[in-house]
């Protein structure tokens, strides 16, 4: 099993993800350039990661340009064949723009970039990540200006009914309420998956919480989950 991390121009959490997976989780990692179009070395057991950052400067809309990059065509095909894909922060935005995940990420309700520790908890055990992390509150950092998840009522109902909501923002005791929501995301949604349960997107950064040096390893379980078979 190995991870592939896609580097877009403007990605800036690609190296953090590499350090987390390679140094802290002892996983094999391959860095992939967005202009390449070859994912043939990856199988269904592997996982492609779209890291955080400001791909293409986020100049049109977050993630809007990255989805047209040659590598994204391959990622879409890889995902449609059941391969595991994780998008974090800007990666989540790209997955939504590419249609691999439903909904959009809007500007934070307070209209400011926000970087701090927040708590999230797994919503359902019926997906790879949720099944692995359980429902205890995890302390994971966020860092975004446009992280307010939004979807129309019909999509939300579908997400709910299909148990596609992976994480919700909560407080340190695991209580989900308005004060534990850092950006105004609808229903405190912090992360979701697709119907096939092989494509995951989340705003918080698990790769920033995998090291003893940083005094927070709550993110390990989230990334570890992806080493398991779907």
């Amino acid at each position: 099993m190995k991870f592939g991390i896609i580097v877009f121009p403007g990605s800036n959490c690609d190296r953090d993800m590499m350090h987390a997976l390679r140094d802290d989780l002892k996983q094999e990692v391959v860095m992939l350039w967005h202009k390449d179009r070859d994912l043939s070395m990856f199988t269904k057991d592997d996982c492609i990661v779209l890291p955080g950052g400001f791909s293409y400067g986020d100049y049109l809309r977050c993630g809007a340009l990255a989805r047209f990059s040659p590598m994204m065509e391959q990622v879409i095909e890889f995902a449609n064949n059941g391969g595991k894909v994780l998008g974090v922060c800007n990666g989540f935005q790209i997955l939504c723009e590419a249609g691999l995940l439903p909904g959009v990420l809007l500007q934070n309700d307070h209209q400011k970039f926000t970087c701090k520790n927040v708590y999230i908890k797994g919503e359902s055990t019926e997906n790879l990540i949720g099944g692995h992390v359980g429902n205890k509150a995890l302390r994971i950092p966020v860092a975004h200006g446009e992280g307010r998840y939004h979807a129309d009522a019909e999509t939300l109902k579908k997400l709910q009914d299909n148990k596609q909501i992976v994480f919700r923002y909560c407080d340190e005791h695991g209580e989900v309420h308005i004060n534990s929501n850092p950006n105004g995301a609808i229903n405190n949604i912090a992360g979701i998956c697709n119907e096939g349960r092989n494509v995951f997107g989340m705003m918080p950064h698990p790769e920033r919480a995998t090291s003893d040096v940083l005094n927070n390893i709550d993110g390990r379980a989230i990334l570890e989950a992806l080493t398991h078979m779907n």
Partner: peptide
């Protein structure tokens, strides 16, 4: 909080502050 203080996963201040920033 309007600054990304954690990108690079080197800043150890977030979870254990000290007088100077300690960066691995």
């Amino acid at each position: 909080e309007q600054y990304d203080s954690m990108v690079g996963t080197g800043n150890t201040q977030t979870n254990e502050p000290s007088d100077a920033a300690i960066v691995r």
